[in-house]
């Protein structure tokens, strides 16, 4: 267990180093920070003096080292737009993004597992065929299009749900979230469904194919031969085995979903990190951009490590103390 954690820590560090290099390269090459900081009146000589003072003329390696040392301490510089530390700006907005991702994950779990199981055990019913057909369409429609369609139907035509914004939030145990107010929830529904729309069809298909594979396995046949009721064979024996590979894929996809929030948040004007990221690109707010890349990378690495640990805990044949 200890070796496993140590190994994962080393791997995570390497991954984070690579990500930081990318982030720094972005910072180094994207726009000119002086243009954002200074007005038209500053002369070229003064600009050069400021450059030297800020260390922008130092060699790449020196600058990267400085960047790393600061980054480890959580210092990504001050946002040009907000005049606050970039990390603080990101973390402020992160709650909203995670709220969205969490809601979308909930939707995916609640729909994909029952629907996938239904398709697996009733492969010939028309409803299963309908689910499969709709899911293949769902995979091929991009998120922003789904988002716009949802918005058009449910807020503009039907007027049931608000089209944009996050709505009211309430504080519960120090957690400021839209989950705790009716208004917040109604604002959450459309963006969450839009975000889930890209993964949901994929997961339905995944659950279905895994379940079909499990149902044709020998232990399922043996379970029937033992005289177990069909329900128990399906929902206890086959389901648990179905969920294992789902966990692995799910872990990776949650990370991917954080990335997809960029589009969803933009369309729904959701005040999260994705929305902030797009704005920052337009304003060339490099500290915020680099901080975003690093934070999202960190979320990726953490979720995947947790998933690997969980997998080892659930699957008795995986021994974390052995070769990692």
């Amino acid at each position: 267990m200890f070796t496993f954690l140590l190994k994962r820590l080393v791997q995570a560090t390497i991954v984070m180093l690579v990500i930081s290099l990318v982030a720094f390269a972005v910072k180094d090459n994207l726009g000119d920070p002086l243009r954002e900081l200074t007005g038209q009146s500053v002369s070229e000589a003064e600009r050069q003096a400021m450059r030297t003072e800020m260390g922008l003329n130092d060699p790449f390696v020196v600058q990267y080292k400085r960047f790393l040392i600061n980054a480890v301490q959580g210092d990504f510089g001050t946002s040009y737009t907000f005049n606050r530390p970039a990390l603080e700006v990101i973390l402020d907005r992160l709650v909203a993004t995670l709220e969205l991702v969490f809601a979308a994950t909930l939707i995916i779990i609640c729909f994909s597992i029952p629907l996938g199981i239904y398709c697996a055990i009733n492969p010939k019913k028309w409803f299963s065929k309908l689910i499969m057909a709709v899911s293949s369409i769902g995979i091929s429609i991009p998120v922003f299009l789904t988002a716009i369609l949802l918005m058009y139907v449910f807020s503009i035509e039907l007027g049931w749900l608000p089209a944009y914004g996050r709505g009211d939030t309430a504080n519960w145990l120090g957690w400021e979230s839209g989950f705790f107010t009716l208004d917040g929830l109604s604002h959450l529904i459309l963006p969450a469904f839009a975000l889930a729309s890209i993964m949901l069809p994929l997961f339905i298909r995944l659950v279905r194919s895994e379940m079909i594979e499990q149902l044709s396995s020998e232990y399922v046949k043996f379970a029937y031969a033992k005289g177990l009721p069909q329900r128990r064979v399906w929902y206890v024996h086959a389901l648990k085995n179905t969920l294992l590979p789902l966990l692995t894929v799910g872990g990776v996809q949650i990370g991917t979903m954080v990335a997809y929030t960029i589009l969803t948040e933009k369309v729904f004007q959701w005040p999260g990190t994705g929305f902030l990221f797009l704005d920052s690109i337009q304003r060339t707010d490099t500290p915020v951009i680099t901080a975003y890349v690093i934070v999202v990378g960190l979320i990726f690495v953490i979720t995947n490590t947790i998933v690997d640990l969980l997998y080892g805990l659930i699957n008795p044949t995986v021994n974390l103390t052995a070769k990692g």
């Binding site: 020998e218 379970a223 031969a225 005289g227």
Partner: peptide, 18 residues
């Protein structure tokens, strides 16, 4: 199960690993 018991070929796969 109660009147007819069944033994399969491969004991590796006839038990559920989880």
């Amino acid at each position: 199960g109660s009147k007819i018991g069944f033994i399969f070929q491969d004991p590796m796969t006839s038990l559920n690993t989880l």
